[in-house]
């Protein structure tokens, strides 16, 4: 059974210049223990989607089901329970920790709020969590500014794990870190997933990271999902023109196998009051009149969904 199901989810932000369609009619489901990678460029709505799913933002429309139960509009006790089961790790370990709490206090905060623990047990539990996330005991009474970026992100992870959630949204958790530290955190997240059967949504713009950590991938463009399928399939057979361009733009360290780069014209357009139809059409080399009609995700090959009306011609299917 899917742990999390999202159907026709929408998140709009009204602004003085019009309505921003940050997430527009997105549907997907994640099985327990899997990692769904959400990729796309800045402003495509991937973070908003992650935050809406765990109710940090209220959805505008659509349905969110967690363990089969409709949790789109939870009442207060349900919300409380959901918060314990759905957690988030933020991108910026510098701004997501309270500068006036020590590491131990930061990690103990959710433990206190849950009322699961006796006061005397708290420090011991915090110590266990620090150990789990690989933070040395000597940092117990340190403040966030005394820690480097990698250790701060470990604190963010320990805090997210405090109440043993089932589901964690990882919102660009390694983007602010250097590569050598990034690998440490990715390994930690994968170890924890294996040990506790965690389910992740992994939001990132880094395709090599997402390929490494995810079992399935959703590619987003301007609030819409353009392609979704298992990770291996996506990298072997990208079908949507945007995904193809995105993958071709990855710079690899392999100097003998250079990608044939598909250069896109122009830049991402505005998500304010978008026109109907495919939002990528303006930059798409294959766009025709037809593309300005609304286009749903279609299952093109088994398990591989694409929103593109020319997908068959482009890929000779």
């Amino acid at each position: 059974m899917a742990l999390l199901e999202v159907e026709h989810l929408k998140k709009y932000f009204p602004t003085s210049r019009g309505v921003v369609h940050a997430v527009d009619d997105v549907s997907f489901s994640i099985e327990k223990g899997k990692t769904m990678g959400l990729v796309g460029e800045s402003g495509c709505g991937k973070s908003t989607l992650g935050r809406t799913v765990i109710h940090l933002l209220d959805s505008t429309d659509g349905v969110i089901r967690f363990e089969g139960e409709d949790v789109t509009h939870p009442d207060k006790p349900t919300m409380h329970k959901l918060r314990e089961q759905m957690q988030i790790i933020f991108q910026d370990p510098y701004s997501s920790l309270n500068p006036r709490l020590t590491i131990q206090e930061t990690i103990m905060e959710p433990l206190q709020l849950s009322k699961r623990f006796d006061k005397t047990q708290l420090p011991k539990e915090a110590e266990r969590l620090m150990d789990l996330a690989g933070i040395e005991k000597r940092f117990r009474n340190a403040y966030p500014h005394e820690l480097d970026g990698g250790r701060r992100q470990r604190v963010g992870i320990a805090r997210a794990l405090a109440l043993m959630p089932k589901f964690i949204v990882c919102d660009e958790p390694v983007s602010a870190l250097d590569v050598s530290i990034q690998a440490q955190i990715l390994n930690l997240l994968m170890d924890l997933q294996e040990e506790y059967g965690l389910t992740y949504i992994f939001v990132t713009h880094d395709l090599s990271v997402v390929r490494h950590i995810s079992t399935d991938i959703c590619v987003m463009y301007l609030g819409q999902m353009v392609e979704t399928c298992p990770t291996k399939e996506l990298f072997a057979h990208p079908l949507h023109p945007y995904t193809k361009a995105l993958l071709s733009a990855i710079l690899t360290v392999d100097i003998h196998h250079k990608n044939e780069r598909i250069l896109l014209k122009g830049e991402i357009n505005s998500p304010i009051n978008p026109k109907p139809g495919c939002r990528f059409a303006q930059r798409c080399p294959y766009a025709t009149e037809e593309c300005h009609q609304p286009i749903p995700l279609q299952e093109v090959t088994p398990g591989h969904f694409v929103a593109c009306c020319h997908v068959k011609d482009i890929n000779n299917l």
């Binding site: 050598s180 990034q182 690998a183 090599s208 490494h212 360290v253």
Partner: peptide, 19 residues
């Protein structure tokens, strides 16, 4: 170490080797 820490686009490794 730097090369080992980057996820490879063409090879599948179960774990990265961080420094």
């Amino acid at each position: 170490g730097l090369f080992g820490a980057i996820p490879d686009m063409y090879k599948d490794v179960a774990r990265l080797s961080p420094i």
